[in-house]
Design a protein around this nucleic acid. Structure first.
Lengths: 142, 142
DNA sequence: AAAAATAACAGTAATAATTATCGGTAGTAT
DNA sequence: ATACTACCGATAATTATTACTGTTATTTTT
């Protein structure tokens, strides 16, 4: 059970990971909690949050910061793209190279009628690039 | 003042829009509240939220659903791309065509050291596509 | 294998961001 | 000018997430 690094392999932890990996869609913490409860009726929502956070840190799953207030989780940690339904919030995978996707707006992928996309980069801003790597996180000045 | 459609052109509303449009960065609601208070000391945080929501609906600004728990707002409603600092959360614009950007990973844009990107599509999922357009928003079933 | 150490749990309280409520005020239309 | 009502400030409520606390279970030490 090298999976969890030097963290314990608890029943709750492995059930959370298994159930998430068996889903094609990408549930919220609360959504996965409902699913996991079928196998672990006494599990706590806090346990689901705690483990999703840990599994993300370990690189076994990914946390998706998509539209809406709730985060979503993907049992597949490999880099790929997502579609979110603007009406119900559901998130699915799109398996295609980015260049095909950007050229193919208006087409259908994964059964979705595609309306558009957002492309966000992440990196280190000029101000943070000047301070040492492990300095305390700065306040975003405007 | 056709700007606000058939909504009223209040002092608070126009100050919020003006101050947001004068910023190169993309503040949170709370961040913009602090800025707007210099001109409107008695303005309420709720008013800022309410108007940012309205201005987004009117298409005068955009709401950015980026990483972190707080939404951010962009005074420029035209389609373009964003970088977010992974350390401080600040968000800035990137002005370049998407194909250049995807090819140019590792380069610097807007002074940021770029670490990666996320590409998210939005559209209508198969299930929602079957129901009428103005039906109540469905619950995301998993 | 038993005892000690501690990671993780369930349950619950606290926090943070956002949204809703409510009485009063100020734009807008008649 | 008056009436109508959207909008305001202040505050309460809600929602998602995180932290706390006492207990349980896994691992390590003896």
């Amino acid at each position: 059970m090298k999976y969890f690094d030097n963290h314990r392999n608890t029943r709750q932890r492995s059930v959370i990971l298994e159930e998430l990996q068996n889903l094609a869609s990408h549930p919220t913490a609360a959504g996965l909690y409902e699913i996991v409860r079928h196998r672990q009726p006494n599990i706590s929502l806090g346990t689901v949050y705690r483990n999703l956070e840990l599994l993300t840190r370990l690189g076994l799953i990914q946390k998706l910061e998509v539209g809406g207030r709730q985060a979503r989780f993907d049992g597949n940690a490999d880099s790929h793209f997502h579609v979110q339904c603007v009406r119900c919030g559901r998130v699915d995978d799109i398996h295609a190279p980015p260049l095909d996707l950007l050229g193919g707006e208006g087409n259908d992928f994964s059964g979705y009628r595609i309306l558009g996309y957002t492309l966000q980069f992440h990196g280190i801003c000029p101000r943070c690039g000047k301070t040492s790597t492990n300095s305390k996180q700065e306040i975003d000045r405007c």
